[in-house]
């Protein structure tokens, strides 16, 4: 599904990722953990195609194809999805209009017919229920004035509607209280399936109590310094990141 090889990425001349390797197969859920500034968000943004990141060496292959030359919208059409750490507020852009435009852009790109208004509304209501998103938020501008929890639910709603093959969740747990966290995790779990892979980027182990990873990786200093199963996350929680970093340095 996704193969990241020896990836080096610089931002404004400063190297952030320093040779990162990651293999993700269909159906797997990988947690990428690490201290602040370790390059977690950079990895998420590079995968989604954001400007301002310079890949200095290495490569990323997605479903056998070189991902890096693709525009962000092309990546989305091929089933890649990024749930933002800070979902962007779009004043004046109606949420329903946005969701419909997103779905239909993907359908058109794949040669499928557009959903009409009735079919779309039926679908969006069903998915909104899944993430317990208040339906009135569908009529409001995208994320504008939404609470932290509402923004994250809106992200998961988009994921549910777009049905990606590879979903990257960037710090989806940040700023959520325990109830919102549970709702978001339920939404994510409902979307897990044998054909869909997920990368959950998180600083804390907390989210992983609700979303069980197949693999846990520790990202530090721009590289994956340790990989393991879910028990690694618990160990990190107990001992802190200092422990891995010290061992790495030793």
């Amino acid at each position: 599904m996704l193969s990241v090889r020896e990836l080096k990425v610089a931002v404004e001349g400063k190297e952030i990722l320093k040779g990162l390797d990651l293999e993700v197969l269909p159906g797997e859920l990988h947690a990428v953990m690490g201290p602040n500034g370790s390059g977690k968000s950079t990895l998420a943004h590079v995968l989604a195609g954001r400007d301002g990141y310079e890949v200095t060496s290495g490569g990323v292959f997605y479903q056998g194809e070189d991902l890096l030359p693709l525009e962000p919208e092309e990546r989305a059409h091929k089933g890649l999805f990024l749930a933002f750490q800070y979902p962007v507020e779009l004043p004046g852009v109606n949420n329903t209009y946005f969701l419909k435009a997103a779905i239909n852009a993907g359908r058109v790109a794949r040669g499928e017919p557009e959903l009409d208004a009735v079919a779309f509304m039926k679908l969006v209501r069903e998915k909104a229920k899944l993430v317990q998103l208040d339906e009135t938020l569908l009529k409001r501008p995208v994320n504008a004035g939404f609470s932290g929890g509402e923004k994250k639910r809106n992200e998961i709603l988009q994921m549910a509607l777009l049905e990606p093959r590879l979903a990257i969740l960037d710090e989806t747990d940040s700023g959520l209280d325990i109830d919102a966290l549970r709702v978001v995790a339920d939404g994510v779990n409902a979307l897990r399936g044998p054909d869909r892979a997920m990368i959950v980027v998180t600083h804390y182990q907390r989210l992983l109590e609700y979303i069980e990873p197949d693999y846990v990786h520790v990202l530090a200093g721009g590289r994956i310094v340790r990989s393991g199963d879910k028990s690694l996350a618990l160990e990190l929680e107990r001992k802190g990141y200092g422990w891995v970093l010290e061992e790495e340095a030793a």
Partner: peptide, 24 residues
């Protein structure tokens, strides 16, 4: 970037944001 990451083309994203700006 947010709009494009959802599959919306650059020209359409631009239109959506402009109409959004005009919406007030």
């Amino acid at each position: 970037f947010y709009l494009r990451s959802r599959g919306i083309s650059e020209p359409e994203a631009r239109k959506m944001l402009c109409v959004g700006f005009a919406q007030e």
